[in-house]
């Protein structure tokens, strides 16, 4: 069974927010909330500053604290692509998973259940990419099976430098950010 993940090239991302709009439209995300977002980090000392722009979302962690703390099993690791998903009808809205996620990836949907990025599972089942990946005008996002050594994501991770967010939190994220320039 596949283990889906994403690779995002920070050197190509311009922070246009197309991925955010695509997600909101595709998944009918309610006003005031988002399942993916843009983070911008400026580091260094003037005048040698560098800026990294990242499209962020649930990291589909391999070691997901949000799943471990859920009292009803609503948050679970699904068989399909080993994705971390939420069953709305099982969620009691206790918000433990919101507190457990170090990335702030979850929110409470106005209808009461915990909500977050699903990697557009409904699209994956049709053989399509997640909406954010497919609309990116700079093609900075790659999606695929991390367990398949021949997938594009695996080959990118093999050949380029990458990082995950807050690796020290121990969640083993499955979204990788490429940090070097494309060859």
């Amino acid at each position: 069974m596949a283990r889906f993940g994403m690779v995002i090239d920070t050197s190509k991302c311009v922070g246009c927010l197309d991925c955010v709009v695509a997600c909101k439209t595709e998944n009918d995300v309610p006003d005031g909330f988002c399942r993916d977002w843009i983070a911008t980090e400026v580091t260094g000392t003037f005048p040698s500053l560098s800026m990294e722009i990242r499209s962020e979302r649930c990291n589909m962690c391999d070691n997901p604290p949000c799943v471990y703390c859920c009292p009803t099993g609503a948050s679970h690791i699904s068989d399909f692509g080993k994705l971390v998903q939420i069953t709305e009808e099982k969620c009691i809205g206790c918000k433990a998973c919101l507190a457990a996620c170090p990335y702030g990836a979850r929110f409470t949907h106005p209808d009461g259940y915990a909500d977050k990025c699903t990697f557009c599972e409904h699209r994956l089942r049709e053989g399509k990419d997640p909406a954010c990946v497919s609309v990116c005008p700079t093609h900075c996002m790659y999606f695929g099976d991390l367990d398949d050594p021949n997938s594009e994501v695996s080959r990118l991770l093999e050949s380029r430098k990458s990082k995950t967010l807050l690796p020290e939190a121990g969640t083993r994220p499955r979204i990788y950010f490429l940090t070097d320039k494309p060859k």
Binding site: P71, G73, A74, E89, I92, C94
Partner: peptide, 21 residues
């Protein structure tokens, strides 16, 4: 505090060993 109150009974259909709640 629960946001999905009508589903509270879901707590008692399962025992999640890793969940303190």
């Amino acid at each position: 505090d629960l946001e999905h109150k009508l589903y509270v009974w879901r707590l008692y259909l399962t025992f999640e060993i890793t969940s303190p709640m």
